[in-house]
């Protein structure tokens, strides 16, 4: 009962704020609505017993990516006076964008309904913690993926520092 209420709360929050993100003419509203979308997704993760993933979602998407987006928009639109609004969208663009979106929605829902999802009963009944098993898997079976991701991030940091220094 309580779980259902919480689920519908988060579901409505995600869909509603995602609609604001897409439909708002003002970029700053889109960015701040994204906060509630990310938060709602984190809430859904909690309901799925993915505690580590939920906190990571808040840490990376709200604490990192959203702050970066807000900085980008604040420093461009309000300070320099340049208005970032999609005023150029004509009818032809809208038609093709709508067509592509509908095609994507139809194909995704077709895939989702036609696939024979393999569901297996959970072998580990203790779902109270995921962090230990995630840590063990990352450092044993998925070490290569883990290390390549960290090397990739390191390259990005060095590149950013290099670009910032050149001036």
């Amino acid at each position: 009962m309580l779980v259902d209420i919480v689920f519908w709360f988060f579901a409505v929050l995600i869909i509603g704020s995602a609609l604001v993100v897409v439909l708002s003419k003002n970029m700053i509203y889109s960015v701040f609505a994204l906060l509630f979308t990310f938060f709602g997704v984190a809430g859904i993760y909690v309901l799925l017993n993915a505690d580590f993933l939920a906190v990571t979602q808040i840490m990376i998407y709200i604490g990192g990516i959203l702050v970066l987006l807000i900085f980008g928009i604040m420093l461009t639109s309000n300070v320099t006076g340049v208005d970032i609004k999609s005023v150029q969208t004509g009818k032809i663009q809208m038609f093709f964008a709508g067509l592509v979106s509908i095609l994507i929605i139809v194909s995704i829902s077709f895939i989702a309904y036609s696939t024979n999802w393999k569901v297996s009963p959970t072998t580990n009944t203790d779902v109270s913690t995921t962090i230990e098993s995630i840590g063990k898997q990352l450092l044993t079976n998925y070490l290569l993926a883990f290390e390549s991701a960290s090397v990739l991030l390191l390259i990005a940091i060095i590149g950013a520092a290099l670009i910032a220094r050149r001036k």
């Binding site: 906190v55 808040i58 990192g64 702050v67 807000i70």
Partner: peptide, 23 residues
Amino acid sequence: NIGLFYVFAVGAFAVIGIVMGGW
């Protein structure tokens, strides 16, 4: 069981709120 990590993550809301109010 990830309490420390959680406290750090929700601190992000303060940054967003401050930037929101300032802007």
